[in-house]
Amino acid sequence: MADIKKIATRESYGNALVECAEDFPNLVVLDADLAGATKTGTFKKAYPDRHIDCGIAECNMTGIAAGLATCGKIPFISSFAMFAAGRNFEQVRNSIGYPHLNVKIGATHAGITVGEDGATHQCFEDIALMRTIPGMTVIVPSDDVEARAAVRAALEHEGPVYLRFGRAAVPVFNDNADYKFEIGKGVQLKEGSDVSIIATGICVDSALKAAELLAADGIKADVINIHTIKPLDEEIVLKTAKKTGKVFVAEEHSVIGGLGSAVCDLLSEKAPTKVVKIGMKDRYGESAPAGELVKKYGLDGEGIYNTIKANL
């Protein structure tokens, strides 16, 4: 296992902005005094004239981005998910969503893997908030390869995009020649006919690990990576639900309103199937190293495996 490369998706985000800078001359990056943490500092160093630090004022940063977008810029606004989606919800809704402006929201430090900073900074509600905004695209990359591809795809896409990145280093598993990122297109990672595991973000890697444990018990899991929560790849979700009839959805987010809910919305209407949601169960987080929290809340491979075994 020692040779598996690990990179935090926030790191990938900062690198991707630099990689895209020449191809997108209208790209500008805005921060609210967190350039060091959101890793946009990398971009700031390379393109100081295209980086604007707005100070600790996320709502104003969002409005500034809206104004810049009306003048042809493609602003990326950066903050922690708690502020980018939480504190900022109404600004994103009214100043960016309603006029459908071409602003990208790079939200880092999402979920429980914030770790030691604890509950006030661990956001489990952002996917729910952002996916209710009409016209908003919501993307949750699972590793470095996907995060960098997602940033480029967001820049190519006309309209608002919310991208969710993590603080903790996570294994890189999409580094194969066949990997292709397309907004709204899920990725079939493993074929199986007994249970479906639909996952997003850090839980994709956990789902693959759970599938290995299940395989040892003779249970074949169909594993799907949904990097785009909205628009949801309905085809791939319906196909796996019809194939296995048992769906488990895993995410580093509240079980209320996240990918699990999006899957239930779809299946309840088009292919009623039992769905078990694996995520934060209507509660706040707490301080501890990220790895310990992931384990405690059952979001690692073993945790997902245990939930599946208990619900078969």
């Binding site: 604007i52 709502c59 409005g63 104004g67 810049l68 009306t70 109404e90 600004q91 100043s95």
Partner: peptide, 29 residues
């Protein structure tokens, strides 16, 4: 998007000035 001549959607108080600041910043950039 609806009305010719309207440069920014607004109505939620306090948000329009930020958009105006963004426009002024774009001119400077």
């Amino acid at each position: 998007q609806e009305t010719p001549g309207v440069d920014m959607s607004s109505g939620s108080l306090g948000q329009g000035i930020s958009a105006a600041v963004g426009m002024a910043l774009a001119a400077k950039l």
